[in-house]
Design a protein around this nucleic acid. Structure first.
Lengths: 351, 351
DNA sequence: TGTTAGCACTCTCCACTGTTGAGTGCTAAC
DNA sequence: GTTAGCACTCAACAGTGGAGAGTGCTAACA
């Protein structure tokens, strides 16, 4: 893009300094502050001139005539793309995250819940972790088990050891043999299929093979369908929302409430998931780059985890545009790695 | 108690009026307001005198000399115990709640989640619903199912059709017969036992009966134990927290944050559950009657649902002490009824 | 030609002030 | 026992002025 070169090195340095300071202080940054704190070898007057230029170019703005400067969305964008230092996670921090994640996770869902809470407490921003979209995953097995003479339990297992079940209540006589036949038929029809391609057979088609009444078969098949639905369902974990109230940009209660409500609702998730899963790489959406209205004053950092195609989900960190991009990006990527490894481990254990 | 008679009818009426108005307005209530709005047939001066008495007795307080009066915790307590009108849910409102609850709930957990969201949106206060404590519930059945030649699935079913499962990965040869024997042994040992009394047998004791290697048995038995743990685990549903930000008493961001964090944490739940399950009837804890510090400026209305002994849980509604007690109490009781019926239905279906 | 010191200017923030209005307590009259 | 009337109190609000932070511009300097 043309405007990538409109800044000389000095301007870039000044812009970086302004943003670095502003991220810390949340206060408009004056020329004196930059001149003193950062050894650019320049006087405040010079910096004032440069700042005037930067403002004209749209990288920073002035809340009012005699205030310092505040970065604009364009400023942050440039900062994220060209200026920001990669934040090197300290050994100690890596250890901290690792340790928190290391308690053996019994279930995949616990993994996401935990990851969510760790990121949010580590970065200090609200975090959303979405459980993977499993439509592309293969069905491993369907089991129909008799619990007592009035209840059958339908169990669906897919790759990765993910299990859903549903109880079926009935009034028929069911012998062990029929159940085995039913389980076998279901497995021939469904096992190895992708969840999204799996079509549950018609009850009528199974009466002969299984020697079971159609009413019962319907119940069971509905239960299978329900298990598929449940397993395809995306869970959402949300943690650290109250952190938002720490930031001065949310001293306006009305705004705070609006955003908190948004985060608890379903809309964000839909939008975020859709977008995230399209572009697979790390994304940083700054302020007005976000589509949803209340997010237009926030930034959202999102990445996708998991195996392409079979089980991908998304992690998003949400904060004021003045967020510590460096640290956030490093943490999210590091956690993504850990999750990927864990998923790999769970899936590989299957072989 | 002695002080129940220290108020004559006129004082009671005035106190009731003050609280009714204050609940609506959140503003200190003056004598003129009461004199005009409520046809007590009294002038403002008279009311002033009575208010002075009420203040001396501790039912109301004055934020500062020339302000109106604000109810004290003692005032609210008297209001709840003696003055409050039972709020009659309108036919329309009943319909509204009924309809929302009526979508067939597939799983017990969905029932609680739904109930939680309904109450909070109906009353406008944050609501906590705790899934039942199931320690007293009877184990119906344990199943060990082969998923493939390296995985077994352990399934635990208790009364009410509640199911938990855990996958076990192993490297042994397992024939169908051994599995049946294992399942049988486990059922003899565990079925019919209360969850809290269930003691998983030792692996060593089962090697002979089942013809299975001890290592495998250990894995399976651990899985059974884990299923028990999971089923005893109490889930917590929380909804409508952001509503708190609507109330002027939370314009102080620091306080708001403190309470929001408290609600998201585990502590409240522990305390609330313990207390709720002890006293079984409806409880209203007003302000300082609460034990947890940040709740001392809030009121908590709690009730217990479910069958005594086998599956009881709690519902709590949290709001400013200035909450609409009448409506809240009616709604919580109504929802409790609905949940009780639903639980009854699910448990009875078993017979 | 680029840099900087100096200065006048602007604007927010804060503390102070006086005014308004709501509400009280007390007293005296009904 | 009730109430009208009055003096008093206090929060809330708007206006005022100084302090401080920061700017833009200009002129001098390297």
């Amino acid at each position: 893009m043309a405007w990538e070169n409109e800044l000389n090195d000095r301007k870039k340095n000044i812009l970086k300094s302004i943003i670095d300071v502003y991220i810390q202080s949340a206060q408009p940054v004056g020329s004196r502050t930059i001149a003193r704190k950062h050894d650019l070898g320049l006087g405040s007057a010079t910096i004032r001139n440069e700042m005037a230029d930067l403002e004209e170019l749209g990288y920073i703005t002035q809340p009012h005539t005699s205030a310092g400067r505040v970065p604009s969305d364009k400023g942050y964008r440039f900062y994220v793309d060209h200026l920001m230092q990669a934040y090197q996670l300290a050994q100690e921090e890596i250890l901290q995250i690792r340790q928190a994640m290391e308690d053996r996770v019994e279930e995949l869902n616990q993994l996401f819940k935990k990851a969510c809470s760790i990121i949010s407490s580590f970065t200090g921003y609200p975090t959303i972790v979405m459980s993977p979209q499993l439509s592309g995953t293969l069905i491993k097995s369907v089991q129909v088990v008799a619990i007592d003479d009035k209840h059958l339990l339908v169990v669906l297992v897919v790759e990765g050891g993910i299990v859903r079940n549903k109880m079926v209540r009935h009034n028929e006589m069911v012998d062990e043999g029929s159940l085995v036949r039913l389980t076998n038929v279901l497995n021939t029809r469904l096992a190895g299929k992708k969840l999204c391609n799996a079509t549950v057979p018609l009850a009528a088609d199974l009466t002969i093979v299984t020697h079971l009444p159609e009413t019962l078969l319907t119940l069971v098949l509905d239960a299978v369908q329900e298990c598929i639905r449940r397993i395809e369902n995306i869970d959402v974990y949300l943690d650290g929302v109250t952190n938002l109230l720490n930031f001065p940009e949310f001293s306006d209660l009305l705004k705070a409430r609006e955003v908190l409500e948004l985060l608890h609702g379903q809309d964000v998730i839909n939008t975020l998931v859709k977008r995230a899963l399209n572009e697979r790489k790390l994304q940083v959406r700054i302020g007005s780059e976000n589509e949803i209205d209340p997010l237009k004053e926030l930034s959202v950092v999102t990445t996708v985890y998991g195996h392409e195609g079979r089980s991908t989900g998304a992690i998003s960190i949400i904060g004021p545009t003045r967020m510590t991009y460096g640290k956030v990006v490093s943490s999210i990527l590091y956690i993504k790695e850990l999750i990927d490894k864990e998923i790999m481990r769970i899936f590989d254990e299957e072989e």
